[in-house]
Design a protein around this nucleic acid. Sequence first.
DNA 1: TGGATTTGATGAACTTCATTCATTACGCTC
DNA 2: GAGCGTAATGAATGAAGTTCATCAAATCCA
Lengths: 242, 242
Amino acid sequence: MSEAAGKRSFSRRPRAERMEQIEAAARDVFSRNGFAAASISEIAAGAGVVEGTIYKYYENKRDLLLTVLQRWYESMIADYVDQLAGVAGLRNRLRFVIWRHLKSIKDNPDLCRLFYAEVRGSDDYYESTLYRLNREYTNVLMRILRDGMAAGELRPDLSIALVRDMIFGGIEHHVATFLARRGELDVERAAEQLTDMVMAGIVQPPPAPASLGLEAAVRRLERVAERLDPPARGEQQDTGPC
Amino acid sequence: MSEAAGKRSFSRRPRAERMEQIEAAARDVFSRNGFAAASISEIAAGAGVVEGTIYKYYENKRDLLLTVLQRWYESMIADYVDQLAGVAGLRNRLRFVIWRHLKSIKDNPDLCRLFYAEVRGSDDYYESTLYRLNREYTNVLMRILRDGMAAGELRPDLSIALVRDMIFGGIEHHVATFLARRGELDVERAAEQLTDMVMAGIVQPPPAPASLGLEAAVRRLERVAERLDPPARGEQQDTGPC
DNA sequence: TGGATTTGATGAACTTCATTCATTACGCTC
DNA sequence: GAGCGTAATGAATGAAGTTCATCAAATCCA
């Protein structure tokens, strides 16, 4: 124990500030190496701190990861609802949700990979704050779907939850090669295709795309007939308010 | 070094047999504890072997996991194509693929969880045998979709890969709560709903949903004609069996 | 202002595992 | 049954997460 040379001197920071430093370093190291290959010592070095200090603020390595991802999720949700408020129409809103999800994946592939691989699917996930945030996030889509159903724009026999699963699951599988750094991700194109595919599946086909035009045509022909044979029998029952 | 008491005595098995023992034990321990919490020592004990022995057969812990999952995947694929050959019709074949995937998840949730959490999404996955097996597995679906497209049963503008992603991604998200031991999985029901949802999305709408309405329209036009030329010729041929 | 108290920070020690390796012994062949 | 190839051993190694007794900076208070 050679404490003769120089006594150690360290900077002492308020709790919040130090946590920011640690979380920033953790985010960086986790992003670059993944969870398993990330070492507490590297995170500590990045934060200008010693290993033991980290355990003053976080239960363990995993707790630190969850905190980092939680911050990210919170920032994702922040202006979500507000932005969506500016989008009108079922299809546009659906497309926006899909587009925004794709975009956040493209913007933060590393954190996304961590969430997919390390958090979701682990035992403690359903008790975590991250799970609650995820519910909040996906509930935005659920509400859109419910509204669309109530408005008669969607098939009434749909399982809303299954639609959600297909959308987020489809997105996740679609971005897999991108997340593996083995392919590009065209957000616009994917959003368009996915929206189209989901819509064409869940949108109730309009009663008669051709029948309106046809209806009008027949109407006019019937009127022609009436001119020839003025007072015919009343036959305008299935046209609605005539 | 107290080797006085009793010299150690161990059973010496042929390579293949010992590997089976180890893999069986590994499958069990991995299934119960997950990858991280599974210890080589427990696997070794289960196989009636000492830790070091395992490294005579497998590179490392992860290689052992991959081998276990590989065996499972191989057994899954074994009779897949044969079974599918007995199913006719696009919708039935699609439903069978979805149903079978759901069923294999329900039958082996633990291995499935391992695959989702530990393998798929890791760096070396795309170079692994497991990836090739997965491609082989999903290609069965791809072929069905291509055939359906060639036959004009599916929309020609579809991205086949995206349909695949929506199906397998949708399934994965749907079974998440089951895999987390927090819900049941109704294979039949889910298969039906998913098939329906996907089909209604990707199936080209029958040429004329309005054709019935057209039938009515023609009817009315015929009546118009009758007004003009009262006793017309008999023209009820396209009404089906009259 | 200066001592007491609180709390941030330290870093060495501890623990748990995966992994390695020098050594041992089983089983087969000539 | 001697010798050889290979299966098997188990103690040693090393890396990484976690703990803890100790110290010091900041704050409080008389």
